[in-house]
Amino acid sequence: MLSRQTWRVIGTLGLRSAKQTFRRPQLMAPLIVFPTLLLAIQVGGAGRAVDLEGFPPVDSFLAFMLAGAMIQSTLLAGNSGGIALAVDIEMGFTDRLLAAPIPRYAMVFGRLVGTALLGLFTAFWFLAIGFVFGVQFTEGPLGIVVMIALVVASAVAFGSIGAAIALRSGSASVVQGMFPLVFVILFLSTAFFPQDLLQQPAQAIAEYNPLSFIINAVRDPVVFAFTTEDMLKALLGIAIIGALGAVLCARAMRHRLRVG
């Protein structure tokens, strides 16, 4: 059980982390600009994909794509959080935290709270785009709440991976180097195309890609309906990524403290 003071520290560090991203355009821009542009290009250029045989019945291609754009944005938020943490390490700011009487994990939790806030922001951003362009949310307000919750939880899980890489490498350029991987992982999931229409081996990879689980569950309330199976798979995907991130973070932190 965390003490009240530890919660206060985590909250303060989370707020600082979010402010840091908003004040550094090079961290903020990729979260919003890239996914929005990609969404615009894909919806504008490949909108007729919905007419393909085997494409699930949807109101619009935008409605289908919205979940992919949201998760792409949260992946980038995790990456940005990692870059920001690495910048803190490079400029010695983490020493300030490590020399303070706070639990070591509060430093990482604070960063993840910041990433969660960014996830919340991106969820609202893409929901706003959906509303503006007339997307109908089949599951209504409850569906929207579930979408937001999944997006925020995903941001935290992806953020933990970014934080682990930052803690281990201590280098912003190394974390930034992970940026292209985000797109590889996304294109090998159901983010931009239904699984049945992907070619092999992408289809097989997408079937087991935890990202697909999350995207499918975020997509359900927009274009289809809630299914218990998709929801459980999404929670499992988030849990797997989060657990992996937590283990890697703990190991990286131990290493960092050992080498100073």
């Binding site: 560090l13 402010k19 550094r24 400029m91 010695g92 700011f93 020493d95 300030r96």
Partner: peptide
């Protein structure tokens, strides 16, 4: 202890007041 390390480890994006407030929170 209080610590001021070499090459003042400050976040250039924070304000002076924000930094002191953060430090105050860290020290409960």
């Amino acid at each position: 202890i209080g610590v001021a390390l070499q090459e003042a480890a400050l976040d250039p994006l924070m304000t002076g007041r924000e930094l002191i407030r953060l430090q105050a929170t860290l020290h409960a």
